[in-house]
């Protein structure tokens, strides 16, 4: 497979994962906002912005309409849903002949839907509906991808993009919640409460699956355990790490590249740290440091993939 094609598939997938994540966060947050005090609402929007690493956005005072618009439709904000979908589409268009027609049509419809929707249209009717439909279309796209694209090398790069992005985003959203939680404990305030934890689970589509394991007993340590270490939940970091490793092994097998070792080793290390991790140790030690390590390991895997499969020097490739 062409290196450029692998790269585009990878980024298409990352952008879509990100757009879906933002849509879920916004949808959940707008719903939860309905029964919140102004103070807790403000805290929540701040956390949301921080978890998306969009702190550079200057929205002061905190204004739900402005934030939602910024994160949804503002094309100049490269992290907005519209911009992510447009970037995913540019990447898909680059590899139009490599993906299935069904995938392209699905993505193109999503793009056109978001493009022709205006902020006022959703804000004054049912904002939640809109984010729900974006999420639905994303899920359809993933389903169509899995059902129509050969599960060969290209699909593996789609998997890589999806799960590397998911691991990073989940780590980020966990991080801001646990920072608030620890602060709240130290100052004995209620910066973060039951509804916030439920919102966190819901915004990661994990509320129902969490309850099946731990019942509706909402405990921060159980949430951390579930979202970091659970082997079966497709939204957990552990699951993402498994998928990254599986995809990298398949790609190494398909390409027969001799330099595949580094990315695989990095992925194996991430995975084993998650499969042998203990939540009480992580919590006792430093949650923040642990999540930062996950972030930096994901970044290293990303770099290793690039250097092995995409941006390798021609001379070195001819010499080998």
């Amino acid at each position: 497979m062409l290196s450029r094609v692998a790269d585009s598939l990878y980024w298409m997938s990352r952008y879509l994962e990100r757009a879906e994540h933002t849509a879920r966060l916004l949808g959940v947050n707008l719903t939860q906002m309905l029964d919140q005090t102004p103070q807790s609402t403000e805290q929540r929007w701040k956390r949301l912005l921080m978890s998306l690493r969009t702190n550079s956005l200057k929205i002061d005072p905190i204004d739900a309409y402005a934030i939602t618009n910024e994160l949804t439709f503002d094309a100049s904000n490269s992290a907005s849903i519209a911009a992510c979908i447009a970037s995913a589409r540019v990447n898909a268009r680059q590899v139009r002949e490599q993906i299935s027609t069904e995938m392209w049509e699905q993505l193109n419809r999503l793009y056109l839907q978001v493009k022709r929707t205006s902020m006022d249209e959703i804000w004054y009717s049912e904002p939640y509906e809109f984010f729900q439909s974006v999420k639905d279309r994303m899920h359809q796209f993933q389903g169509v991808t899995d059902a129509t694209l050969s599960h060969g090398e290209g699909w593996q790069f789609v998997q890589l993009g999806r799960f590397i992005e998911r691991a990073c985003l989940t780590a980020d959203v966990l991080d801001v919640h646990f920072i608030a939680y620890l602060e709240a404990q130290a100052s004995s305030t209620t910066l973060i409460d039951y509804t916030d934890w439920v919102a966190l689970l819901k915004s990661c589509t994990s509320f129902e699956s969490y309850c099946k394991v731990y019942t509706a007993n909402i405990q921060p340590s159980s949430i951390a355990e579930f979202m970091l270490l659970n082997a079966e939940s497709p939204r957990s970091v552990r699951f993402a790490a498994d998928m990254i490793q599986v995809a990298l092994q398949a790609i190494a097998r398909d390409t027969g590249t001799r330099h595949a070792g580094r990315a695989e080793r990095l992925a194996g290390r991430l995975r084993s740290s998650l499969s042998y991790g203990q939540v009480d140790e992580i919590m006792a030690d430093s949650m923040h440091a642990y999540l930062e390590t996950i972030q930096s390991q994901c970044a290293q895997i990303h770099t290793a993939i690039r250097e092995t499969y995409v941006a390798y020097p021609v001379d070195a490739a001819l010499a080998s």
Partner: peptide
């Protein structure tokens, strides 16, 4: 002429 692929040139 070579093309750059994930499996090399």
């Amino acid at each position: 002429v070579y093309m750059r692929t994930t499996g090399g040139l």
